[in-house]
């Protein structure tokens, strides 16, 4: 069964400015005597001591102000960032829809990009190719599928990216804000499809600033503040605390 277990996970970002990022300074810091830059390394602690267990059926809302660590936590859950300390065990196929167009290439045709994006989602090339007609239909791109993606409007690109990214349901679905793509009629289509995906995924983690969205899809919530979990529990209680905190 798909599951996620974080144990006291912390994420520290070292910020190297151009000076201490250079090899010269790294070498000098070793062999030189007193150097003012020695203590120049700034570390941003994006997440601190996060312990969290997610099991099938969990629909987790991430609540918190800008910079609270929601996106970083999502990236840890996606497995992109391995925690600096502590551990993260992620079991199951993850789909992280943070940037739908990730890995796509404007010079390639829409169809080629479907294959490329599909492969990044874990499909074989043949499998990804088999989705081209379905993607063409859903995205309503028709003849544009065989033109380079640079000829698309930004809305068309997103339609294509959304269509391929959501063609298969993952075990674990990670969303940074509820995705909304395209014009009015397409927005309705994407909403339906995304809702179906959320329904079928074993685990959902959704970060959002919209209480309505979180209420609609989540059954438990986590309140983050400055990289720490400051509240955990039922969605209404956490939303109330968030409102208090923001006030």
């Amino acid at each position: 069964m798909p599951s996620i277990a974080l144990h006291r996970a912390s994420v520290d970002f070292p910020i190297y400015n151009s000076r201490n990022r250079s090899l010269r300074n790294a070498l000098l810091a070793r062999v030189g005597g007193r150097l003012e830059e020695a203590g120049d390394l700034v570390t941003v602690r994006a997440l601190e001591d996060i312990s969290l267990t997610l099991n099938p059926g969990d629909r987790l809302a991430l609540v918190g102000r800008n910079g609270a660590g929601k996106s970083t936590l999502l990236r840890v859950l996606a497995g992109a960032y391995e925690p600096t300390s502590g551990s993260a065990v992620i079991d199951g196929r993850v789909s992280s829809l943070f940037d739908l167009t990730m890995g796509m290439d404007a010079e390639l045709t829409g169809a080629d990009n479907v294959v490329l994006r599909g492969v990044f989602l874990g499909m074989s090339i043949a499998e990804a190719r088999s989705y081209i007609p379905e993607v063409a239909e859903f995205s309503e791109l028709g003849g544009f599928m065989h033109l380079p993606m640079r000829t698309y409007s930004s809305g068309m690109r997103l339609r294509l990216a959304f269509a391929i990214s959501t063609v298969r349901t993952p075990d674990i679905l990670l969303l940074d804000e509820f995705i909304s793509v395209g014009d009015e009629s397409f927005v309705r289509k994407t909403r339906e499809r995304l809702e179906r995906m959320i329904d079928k995924a074993h685990i959902l983690v959704l970060a959002s600033h919209s209480p309505q969205t979180l209420r609609a899809y989540c059954n438990r919530a986590l309140l983050l503040h400055e990289g720490r979990i400051v509240g955990e529990g039922p969605i209404e209680a956490i939303l109330a605390r968030y409102k208090e905190q923001a006030a």
């Binding site: 990236r75 497995g79 992109a80 992620i90 993850v94 943070f98 940037d99 990730m102 890995g103 990044f120």
Partner: peptide
Amino acid sequence: GHILGQQAM
């Protein structure tokens, strides 16, 4: 970089 920051690969 763009890919590695978002997905475990």
